[in-house]
Design a protein around this nucleic acid. Structure first.
Lengths: 146, 146
DNA sequence: GGCATATAGTTGTTTGTGCAACTATCCAAA
DNA sequence: TTTGGATAGTTGCACAAACAACTATATGCC
């Protein structure tokens, strides 16, 4: 049976996300070492804006799996850093569309390279078929709970 | 080659730990629904104390993969909730040994059951051999980066 | 048109995290 | 025995997350 996999003693790291915490810390250190003055959380917002800018804060909530207050404050901080701009939507005045500044556009290549580097360091020695299984399981977990 | 597994577009959820975030949120909701007035982070400290109490804050740092200030404040809050007590070590007066109160001992069974329930919900439909692969990969990631 | 309801975003509060700087204590070597 | 370095823990600061309560705008229905 697929159920009841977890005896005591095995719960901990799954729930606390030790692995993803370690990845995020390593990436943050790389950002700092490169003199990039952004947090991982801010980067995660830019990540989606690089794919498509001019989306609403609500769309950023959905994309980043965060609630509205979190996005409000992340956008606040990104705006203070001159990395994004809020632009009121012409159609619907409740909506802020978020656009990247030129400074933010310049960050894309360097930060994405550091992110790939981090994951390569994390996954070196892991065969790709096992990585695929791991990714699939984590996706299922997310889908089961969201 | 095991390297270079990650093309753009696949980075995001690994780095942000979507799955473990979802698990932690679900468990926190279960705690709240059960009227248990503790956070997941506090629970993660209790988790290690249930295995062995009377350990130092530094040992809690190692066990929970947190830095010293984080543990100081978690222990502060657990002490305010009357769940743990700091006891100065007789041998080494720099050290606080952390002990559980009776209230905290009572929490163990109920919270562990909710944690197992959460993981079963997360992993229902996932065959156990794939879960094993996933756990192994995450452990390797952690070991590669720590 | 006017009102109820839904949606987008903001603000306040509590909790947690990471870093740097700090205090207190211990230990070892001169 | 003193002194210098290591270790344990605390505090201050900036940033982030979750929840509740709030404002402003839009929309659908009478």
């Amino acid at each position: 049976m697929p159920n009841n996999q977890f005896k005591r003693g095995e719960l901990y790291s799954f729930i606390t996300g030790k692995a993803s915490t370690a990845i995020a810390r390593r990436l943050q250190k790389k950002f700092n070492a490169a003199g990039l003055n952004i947090t991982i959380e801010q980067w995660s917002v830019l990540y989606h804006l690089w794919k498509q800018e001019g989306i609403s804060q609500q769309e950023l909530c959905n994309a980043t799996f965060r609630d509205k207050p979190s996005i409000t404050r992340l956008v606040d901080n990104l705006e203070r850093l001159n990395l994004v701009k809020r632009v009121a939507s012409a159609n619907d005045r409740r909506i802020n569309l978020i656009y990247l500044t030129k400074q933010a556009q310049k960050l894309q290549e360097e930060t994405m390279a550091l992110a790939e580097e981090t994951l390569n360091e994390a996954l070196i020695t892991v065969p790709s078929d096992r990585i695929d299984v791991c990714k699939e399981v984590l996706q299922i977990v997310y889908d089961n709970l969201k």
